[in-house]
Simulated assay, not measured.
Amino acid sequence: MKVLVVHNRYRSEQPSGENNVVDAETALLAAGGVRVSLFERRSDDIAAMSLPRKALVPGRVPWNRAARAELTARLQVERPDVVHIHNTFPLLSPSVLAACADARVPVVATLHNYGMVCPPGTLYRDGRICTDCVGGAPVPAVKHGCYRGSAAATVPMAANLLLNRSRWRSSVTRFFCISDAQRRLLVDAGMPASRMTVKHNFVTDPGVRRVGDGAHVLFLGRLTEEKGVPLLMAAWDRLGGSLGLPLVIAGTGPLSDEVDAWAASRTDVSYVGLQDKAACQALTASAAAVVAPSAWLEAFGLVVVEAMAAGVPTVAPAHGAFPELISDGVTGLLHEPGSAVALADALRDVVADPERNRKMGEAARQRYDEDFTPEVGLRRLVEGYEAAIAAHRTA
């Protein structure tokens, strides 16, 4: 099988889970005997552009003729069995779909977020879940400046969504949703149910697993409001040091300074900043629990599966993809979304009984072995490609 992967890489200055997923899948396919090649653009390249070229970037978000022409040429030479599209913003655009249609090659697209119904792809605005644009025109997004807090910056994304909505729905042979929760929301918004399948992300076995009861509670991720950092701080303040374990916060983001100052004022919080992959794996494997208090509707929740792989239970809100990843009371605990009281209670509960905590960690690892290993990931990828090829041939 020959697969061409299409992806616009996010900026390297900020860790990107989507970039990591694309890299992991590409390596997995190659190791599994699939002939895989890449058609990429890098958002990092924008910084080196001349001012006139930079000025043209927003106008090419909905349609980039040069990207279409270049991909058309690649398809004529390589003739892949299937094209797998991940992200097209901002330097590729949905014009790549037209190139695939011209070449009559089936297209698989992974939906890593809610970009098909929300210009910034987050379904989050002003500290709350927002579905104002779902199922309709993205006018509210422009009005509220949902992308980078700017109406002007939001316009190209809103235009992209509006102008290319029907093209995505008619040109993609099969969509990969990364959770059933995401799939249900998008189908309700009008996406074609028959062509949307759930394919969870996989996680490579870290090679380290928890031994003992764990030395801390861990938050690992972007330090933003939507990731629930203010909620976690409020919940930890309520606990008042009663947990008997420190909180370790690893990551970076807009709230870094606030988190650093808060951690410095306490003896039971350690802010360690951005860590490399090995350090993150070690922190996870030494945790009594991983906390993922996201305020938005996570489409997946990679940190939860990474904790599973290390045999560590997770505490997370009962919304988005978390209820299908976490079996409440079995592999972790779910709490009422947005409630600092409920989060504090769940954190207290998850470490209160070491034996119960150990059993939850073992059950979490068993769930990982069943559903989230590279072997499972490769099988589901190839099955999805084969189904798309067969459907395209029939059509």
Results as ranks from 00 to 15, higher is better:
L4R: 06
L4G: 06
H7D: 05
R11N: 12
E13I: 11
E13F: 13
P15Y: 03
G17P: 00
V21L: 08
V22Y: 02
D23L: 14
A24D: 13
A30Q: 09
S37N: 03
S43P: 00
D45M: 06
D45K: 05
A47W: 12
A48N: 05
L51K: 06
R53A: 15
G59K: 07
W63G: 03
N64D: 08
E70A: 13
L71D: 07
A73K: 15
Q76G: 14
E78F: 13
V83N: 02
T88F: 08
T88Q: 07
L91N: 10
P94H: 13
V96P: 03
A101R: 13
V105H: 02
V105E: 04
P106Q: 01
A109C: 13
H112G: 01
Y114D: 02
P119I: 07
P120Y: 04
Y124C: 07
V139W: 14
P140G: 12
A141H: 03
V142P: 02
K143A: 14
H144Q: 12
C146P: 00
C146V: 09
T154Y: 03
P156A: 11
N160F: 14
L163V: 14
L163M: 14
N164I: 05
S166W: 13
R169I: 08
F176S: 02
C177M: 15
A181Y: 05
R184W: 12
L186H: 07
G190P: 00
A193F: 07
N201Y: 14
N201E: 09
V211I: 13
G214R: 02
A215R: 15
H216L: 13
V217T: 03
V217R: 01
F219N: 07
L223D: 03
E226L: 11
E226Y: 05
L231Q: 04
G240K: 12
G241P: 00
S242I: 09
G244C: 10
L245D: 01
P246W: 03
A250H: 03
G251E: 02
P254G: 08
D268Q: 12
V269H: 04
S270A: 15
G273A: 11
K277S: 12
A278T: 10
Q281A: 13
L283T: 03
A288Q: 06
L297W: 11
V303C: 06
E306Q: 06
A310M: 10
V312D: 01
T314R: 02
V315T: 04
F322G: 04
E324Q: 11
I326P: 00
V330Y: 04
L334K: 08
P337Q: 09
P337G: 11
S339V: 04
V341D: 13
A342V: 10
L343Q: 07
R348Q: 14
D349W: 05
E355F: 14
R356W: 07
K359G: 00
A364K: 03
F372D: 01
P374N: 06
G377F: 04
L378G: 04
R379W: 06
Y385E: 05
I389V: 15
I389H: 07
R393T: 13
A395F: 10
